[in-house]
Amino acid sequence: MTILPNILILLTALLVVFFQGAFNGVRHLLGAQVDLLPALMVYAALTSGPVMMMTLAVFGGLMFDTLSVNPLGISALPLLFIGFLLQLRRDLLLREQLYAQFTLGLIASALAPVMTVFTLFTLEQSPLLGWGSLWQWIVMSVGGGIATPVFFFLFDRLNHALGYQPIVESSFRADREIRRGRN
């Protein structure tokens, strides 16, 4: 097993968080910023081990909260919960199927902000909420749902390009060829 895919996932988490803060095209267009960390967590939980899942939850969550006014660590809890749930049932999930990837991304991206806001309330914080939040929640969920198959596709390609490829050996040997016929 190589450590490269895990480093790539963590690097992507860092880039994804920075992208969410620095580029606001989606925010201007749809009125909400899409959170891509839950989608990345779906990929990591279904393809890597528990250690990687926990590392991504902590690292991604802390990075997100560093750029945000969120209390430090608050985004890590929902990611950890989502990762844990997925790994608990990963044998039953059709991770190869596109619709399954989309559905899992959608559910994870819908669950993460709800859990974060709930935790914010328990910490006596007052996030900006209203009827518009419902639209933001839909945008975040659908955005996460769409991003999940994209992550699967990109990481599969990357792993294929950078990972070890076993050489397929044929059993054919020219000196052992049995020639049939009279001549």
Partner: peptide, 14 residues
């Protein structure tokens, strides 16, 4: 302005 809050429930910039 170099960054906006990535969370939708805060209105801050860096």
């Amino acid at each position: 302005v170099i960054l906006r809050d990535p969370a939708n429930w805060w209105r801050t910039v860096q």
